[in-house]
C-alpha cells in the first residue's frame, strides 16, 4: 500500500516552515517525517503525517497551496547496508527514483514513475513495505 504524502508550496521566506509546523501542532497532527526541495525563490515541502486530509484542509484554510500524492514506503532495519539493499533492487530493474527520504528513523519514502510495479519488485525481493 502506498502512503499518502502531502506536498506544500512554500516561498523562501523566514517563518513559513514554522507556520506549517504550528498548524500541525495546533491540530494535534503527528509529523512522521518530511523533506524539503528548494529552487531559487521557493521550495516544496513533503510531509507524511498522521491525518493527511485534516492536515491538507487546515493548511488550505491558512492559504497554502497543497497537493496529495502517493509514494512508496518501505521498512528497513537500523543497520549498515539497508539503503543499498532497496536501491540495488530497483536499479537492477532500471527503475529511476525521483526523490527519496527517511521518516521515523527506519522507514524510507520514495517516489518513482510506476509505483505499483516498483512495489511488486520490492516485495519479490523481500523488502518490507509499510
Amino acid at each position: 500500500m502506498p502512503v499518502k504524502q502531502l506536498t506544500v508550496f512554500l516561498e523562501n521566506k523566514a517563518g513559513r516552515l514554522a507556520e506549517v509546523a504550528k498548524i500541525l501542532k495546533d491540530k494535534n497532527i503527528n509529523l512522521q517525517g518530511f523533506s524539503t526541495t528548494e529552487a531559487r525563490d521557493y521550495g516544496i515541502l513533503r510531509l507524511v503525517v498522521s491525518d493527511t486530509e485534516l492536515a491538507r484542509q487546515s493548511l488550505k484554510e491558512a492559504g497554502f497551496t497543497t497537493h496529495i500524492a502517493d509514494a512508496i514506503c518501505v521498512k528497513v532495519e537500523d543497520k549498515p547496508g539497508e539503503l543499498f539493499k532497496v536501491l540495488d533492487v530497483l536499479a537492477k530493474e532500471g527503475i529511476n527514483i525521483d526523490y527519496i527520504y527517511v521518516i521515523a528513523g527506519t522507514r524510507l519514502v520514495l517516489s518513482v514513475q510506476d509505483i505499483q510495479k516498483a512495489e511488486e519488485i520490492l516485495k519479490k525481493n523481500n523488502v518490507l513495505l509499510c
Partner: peptide, 15 residues
C-alpha cells in the same frame, strides 16, 4: 500566484 491548478508535486514541473 501558484494555485492548486498549477501546483505540481515536483520541483522540475514548477521550474
Amino acid at each position: 500566484e501558484v494555485s492548486e491548478d498549477v501546483f505540481a508535486e515536483k520541483i522540475n514541473d514548477l521550474e
